[in-house]
Design a binder for these strands. Structure first.
Lengths: 119, 119
DNA sequence: GACATATGATACCATATGGTTCTATTAAAG
DNA sequence: CTTTAATAGAACCATATGGTATCATATGTC
């Protein structure tokens, strides 16, 4: 098997690395779950955590860098909402291993059959 | 919608948090890609990186804590191989958002249809 | 047993990370 | 225009993290 799948090692925004980094923090994953319910301004997100605005803001910036959320401006508000692209990146990366499992299971099954031949 | 899906905030091994943490490092993701090809001893993994044994060992320990690999002992060697369970945890968590996209797309489509009514 | 090999484990260091406080900007409201 | 609300950004701090060097342990080989 050979694919063009890399590790997403690049440091820039929009890379697989940025997405995985963004997902590595529990607070950020919680924010994503919140945003799955509805888009929210920063202040609204803050209301759901025992943390300062600046703290939440940094998390949102990382989520955005990871391509997991997008920010829409309206007046002085910033509406944060989920962005499929980052999820897609991660999903694809994880999905690469799916083939591995089925291959492995097939091999196990074949091995088991071989064993039976020797019974 | 309501599910029992959490953030996997627990700190112990085998939690979603440990899995996401393990995936957050490029070197560790590269190791996983390596192990997708074949199981490897620590020394073999080390050969693929410009890093000390101890460094690689720490990465392997984190991958194990995240449930992404398992280690089989034979003599003085340790064979590291991929473990589906960690991947499954992550896959499920990401999968939670799949429903969100389709819901959103449906809403967009409905909105578009409403727009057409006003043309 | 002596020696080499594969791993385990600890202490240590530089930097990254998650969080705070404080200050600045921008837009709505009176 | 002054005031208030929502956000942006920088400086700062404690701890986590990725890496190294070093020493200890266990297994294979002669």
């Amino acid at each position: 098997m050979n694919t063009s799948l890399g590790t997403g090692t690049g440091t820039g925004p929009g890379t697989a690395n940025a997405a995985f980094k963004a997902l590595s923090d529990p607070t950020r994953r919680q924010i994503l779950l919140l945003l799955a319910g509805q888009e929210m301004t920063i202040a609204e997100v803050v209301d759901n955590f025992d943390m300062t605005r600046a703290g939440v803001k940094k998390h949102l910036a990382l989520l955005q860098a990871g391509g997991l959320i997008t920010v829409r401006k309206r007046g002085r508000e910033r509406f944060n909402s989920l962005n499929p692209s980052g999820f897609s990146t991660v999903s694809q990366w994880i999905g690469f291993f799916d083939g591995f499992w089925t291959d492995k299971l097939n091999a196990l099954q074949q091995a088991a059959e071989q064993e039976h031949l020797h019974d």
